[in-house]
Structure formats: C-alpha cells, structure tokens
Amino acid sequence: MNQPRLSLSPETFQDFYAQTARPLKSYLVRLTGNAAVADEVLQEAYYKFLRAELPALGERERKNYLFRIATNLVRDLYRGKVEGALPLKETVHSTEEESRLEQVPMKSDVGKVLNTLKPRERELVWLAYVEGSSHREIAEIMGLREVSIRPMLFRVRQKLAELLKSIGYCERMVM
C-alpha cells in the first residue's frame, strides 16, 4: 500500500506549526472556553489541513485556511455534530454569571468576558483584534460576505467596549 500523502513535509510543517500553533490554540481556547477541547480541535484542524489537497498558497493564506478549518470544527462542536463529543455551551448570559462578571477586578479574565459573547462574536473579535486579520480574511475564515464584517465588528466592539467600561477595565498602553 502507498504511503498516504500529507500536504506538507515534516520540515515545512514544523515551520508552519511554529508560526500558527500558539495563535490557533489561543483562538480555540477563547472559542471553546476549554483548553482540553481546544487541544483536540487543534490536532484535528492540523490533520484536516495536512490531508487537504491544497493549491500553492502563501503563508498568510495557509494560516487563514487552517483557521477556517478550526472555526468550522468548533461550530460542529456547538451543533453537536462531532461523534462522541458533547455540544459546547453557546453563551453564559445568565444573570448569575453577569453579576459574577461584575465582581471581576480590573485585571479581569479575558475568557470570562468573551464568554458573554455569542460564539460568532468571539470568532470575530479575536480574528480582528488579536490576529489582526483583514475584513476579507475574516470573511473567508468565517464563511461570511466581506461587506457584512464591518457592521458586525462595529456592533461587537461596541458591546465589548461597554462591557469593559462597566467592569472598570482601562487600557494600559506603553507610550
């Protein structure tokens, strides 16, 4: 039997992994709210990436493609489509959770704040404000139209900013 083909050689994969694994893991931890689940999804995403028959892609496109696979895997988890996995909880909008959030001190946990957002909003803010992806890239990763990104991002940013102000978070920038 022939050896199965993977889309990258071990050496190329190592470089690609070094550039993408940590950002992807952070993204997945924030989407799923669970480090163990994030690890599983991370490995599954790399497997699907390695098995895909990819055209010649630049570094940035490769990374976007990987993030798209991972985003779809997390959405499948939310929909309970993954065999043997429990569907993830979408949001924590309960008043109990919100009141707990209000008690979070200045250096509040990013995860707790993000958990108040819907999964799609989490994807959006993380890609835009942590990954620094362009609207076109976000649209590709999330499977949306580019024109819809700006208004969506505007609404989520406003929501998040209001939430951060309400818990007393102030930006700490090095001048």
């Binding site: 071990p10 070094a18 952070s26 991370l42 998040l160 951060l164 930006e171 700490r172």
Partner: peptide, 26 residues
C-alpha cells in the same frame, strides 16, 4: 478599538503539543 485590542491582547500565550507529535499522529 484600543480598549478591546489591549484587553484581548493580554492573554495570548498558550501551551501547544510538540509539532513532531502532531505530525506523527496525522
């Protein structure tokens, strides 16, 4: 933008499995 980006940027470190292990499993 500044408020949201600086807040989200606080926590971006994450532990990942070694690349060799991921490749071998794949």
């Amino acid at each position: 933008t500044l408020l949201v980006a600086s807040f989200l940027g606080e926590e971006t470190k994450a532990e990942v499995p070694p690349p060799g292990l991921v490749y071998w499993k794949a």
